[in-house]
Design a protein around this nucleic acid. Structure first.
Length: 394
DNA sequence: TTTGATGATTGCCC
DNA sequence: GGGCAATCATCAAA
């Protein structure tokens, strides 16, 4: 068995063709011994035939020694020696011995269909890449998904289109890199497979190599490359996920509402302080006015109610401010149709009454709020607020 | 860098 | 399902 290694390891030679592999097996060393005794052209082989088996064994030892030292020699020298070995009278015998050993060890038969079921992880990766628009046809699938996700999550802010184009371009970059790398791996795989197949065909001149073995080797190569591909797909998925979370995660993209939007919401809140539960219609209206979504309006009112309740003192000033504003707005709304030119002429005295009234009402509402909606007595969202400043002013 | 403000999310209750 | 309360994550001013 030890003798098998060097020969197979020495790979390609320029010997005779594949016909050798069909050499009738079962020759023993005796057949070598009985071979016609003519001097081979490998002059230094020292294989002048002798009668006894001792000599024959020494001959084989010499041959193997030569094979072992081939790699230590220069290329030309090695080629010459290989040629000499290929033409050596004992080569068929050695080859048949190898065939015999191989048949016994069953190496060539051990490769019975090792087909693996498709890796579920790979399937998931493929599906995700397809869904994100990285693999498959480029139709902006991922970007479209991003847009829809962002739209449903938090509405389209003015700079969202800019962000989405950025997202698209980044996704496109990932896509390009992915396809380039994939192509590179496929090309490398093909090249390597061809190379190995050529090598094996070449080797089959000096050792028995069955087509099935070649197939098996190809399958091994493909498996190795497919594991690289899986890694590539994994990395791509990670990159897409990071990109998605960076661009689409609502929390990450939290933006304070515009001053105007906050004003609108606060005005509604403080003018409906006794019942700060806007109906669906009111929410929609507010959302439209503020350029945000209905759910954002709901969030805002939810947060506001809790924070107001937790610290009424802190919000008192704000409440008064909006009460004044509301009153002023109501006053102007009242005045404008009748006295369109009343600019500076509307004295502070004329404003004084409604302002004081508003403040008083506001304080009343706050007081009322302490006892009503604070205590989890949630009114139906559709029910109209009953003591609103706006309504009072109107 | 720290800290308060603020929009969003989550789990629970009714 | 809507709202509350707690919490997270980010923003923005100090």
């Amino acid at each position: 068995m030890l003798q098998q290694q060097p020969l197979s390891a020495n790979g390609a030679s320029n010997g005779r063709g594949l016909a050798m592999s069909g050499h009738p097996g079962m020759h023993s060393l005796n057949s070598v011994h009985q071979a016609p005794q003519h001097r081979s052209d490998g002059g230094d082989s020292g294989l002048d035939g002798t009668e006894n088996g001792h000599e024959t064994r020494r001959d084989i030892g010499d041959i193997l020694q030569q094979i072992m030292t081939i790699t230590d020699q220069s290329l030309d020298e090695a080629q010459a020696k290989k040629h000499a070995l290929n033409c050596h009278r004992m080569k068929p015998a050695l080859f048949s011995v190898l065939c015999e050993i191989k048949e016994k060890t069953g190496l060539s038969m051990r490769n019975a269909a090792e087909e693996e079921p498709q890796d579920p992880q790979l399937v998931r990766l493929d599906n995700m890449l397809l869904a994100e628009g990285v693999s498959g046809p480029e139709k902006g699938g991922g970007a479209a998904a991003a847009v829809s996700a962002a739209t449903s999550a938090g509405g389209m802010s003015p700079d969202s289109s800019l962000e989405h184009s950025d997202y698209k371009s980044k996704l496109s970059q990932i896509r390009t890199i992915y396809h380039t790398e994939l192509e590179k791996y496929e090309q490398a795989c093909t090249e390597f497979t061809t190379h190995v197949m050529n090598l094996l065909r070449e080797q089959s001149r000096t050792r028995p190599v069955t087509p099935r073995e070649i197939e098996r080797m190809v399958a091994i190569i493909h498996r190795k490359f497919s594991s690289i591909q899986t890694q590539l797909k994994q990395s791509t998925c990670e990159a897409v996920m990071i990109l998605r979370s960076r661009f689409l995660d609502a929390r990450r993209k939290r933006r304070n509402f515009s001053k105007q939007a906050t004003e609108v919401l606060n005005e509604y809140f403080y003018s409906h302080l006794s019942n700060p539960y806007p109906s669906e219609e009111a929410k929609e209206e507010l959302a439209k006015q503020c350029g945000i979504t209905v759910s954002q309006v709901s969030n805002w009112f939810g947060n506001k109610r809790i924070r107001y309740k937790k610290n009424i003192g802190k919000f008192q000033e704000e409440a008064n401010l909006y009460a004044m504003k509301t009153a002023l707005g109501a006053r102007q709304g009242e005045d404008s149709p009748h006295t369109p030119n009343s600019t500076g002429t509307s004295s502070s005295v004329s404003l004084c009454v409604p302002l004081c009234l508003s403040l008083a009402l506001n304080l009343y509402c706050v007081f009322q709020a302490n006892g009503s909606w604070q205590g989890r007595s949630t009114p139906p969202s559709g029910s109209p607020p009953h003591s609103d400043l706006s309504e009072q002013s109107d």
